[in-house]
Nucleic acid binder design. Structure first.
Lengths: 141, 141
DNA sequence: TTGACTGCAAAGCATTTGCAGAGTA
DNA sequence: TACTCTGCAAATGCTTTGCAGTCAA
């Protein structure tokens, strides 16, 4: 992703934060910046280990707090593709996640939610849609 | 679900267990029976609390062990619709799960995986498909 | 009989909570 | 200034592990 796009993205996000009355602390901006520049669906631990190099005083508690804030504000999505770890994604639109059971990498894929028949949910108010696939990626085959 | 269906279901499952060289212990059969008769997508805790009435010596460790065995044998599926709890489902075929954010109930729904375009996964070997929706169910609206 | 299973107790680990001090607006 | 946020330490709670006794085959 180009640097200019990243800065535009972050600008948008900080506006969203202001709109939600969330203070723009140094730590929050760093986490946000990390989420936008690293599209690797990181865990709290990965964010923590990477950001600590830049911001040595940063605590895991703050990352947990920040991510909850961002998830509540719908700026970040939690990915529960595995039952023993939560990953995070700075999503903009609906898409699916594929996890390779060999290398562990998570891939995004487009999902056409319109061609998607959901019989049995006629009178349901659907707010969140998560699609998780697992298997083997082309690189590991 | 009719009793006759349940017993047929359990008979099938015990055959599967034998095929996988999994011993038919009293505890495992009880957990299996519970999973087949209670289609409520229970957590370990719910299974434990309910079964303890019948089998007072049953331990949570055994339930964890049993569920892992059943999941590994593809007789039961783990549901990670929420990041702070794992639920289990005695599945037979692919389907989606909808969780009501108001009452917490989980509903099954049919998914036609054929009408489901997955651009970007052309060379991927897809082994598992999980679809999780959240929102408000008709009863809560 | 023998290898697998159960269940207790303890360990492990991700996440949350309480709270004093620091920082944002 | 006033209120929120940070980050340490401790608590919490789910899940796993070690292991001695028990059980299925």
């Amino acid at each position: 992703m180009e640097v200019s796009h990243v800065s535009i993205r972050i600008e948008k996000l900080t506006k969203e934060l202001k709109k939600n009355n969330i203070r723009l602390s140094h730590q929050r901006l760093k986490v946000l910046e990390y989420m936008v520049t690293h599209r690797t669906h990181p865990t709290v631990d990965q964010i923590y280990n990477d950001l600590q190099k830049e911001v040595p005083t940063l605590s895991k508690t703050t990352i947990y707090n920040t991510l909850r804030t961002l998830v509540d504000a719908n700026l970040v999505k939690a990915i529960n593709i595995e039952d023993n770890e939560v990953r995070y994604d700075a999503v903009t639109k609906d898409h699916g996640h594929f996890k390779c059971e060999s290398c562990g990498e998570i891939f995004d894929f487009d999902v056409d939610f319109n061609t998607f028949s959901t019989r049995g949910l006629k009178n349901f108010n659907i707010k969140h849609k998560d699609i998780y696939f697992k298997g083997i990626c082309p690189n590991c085959m």
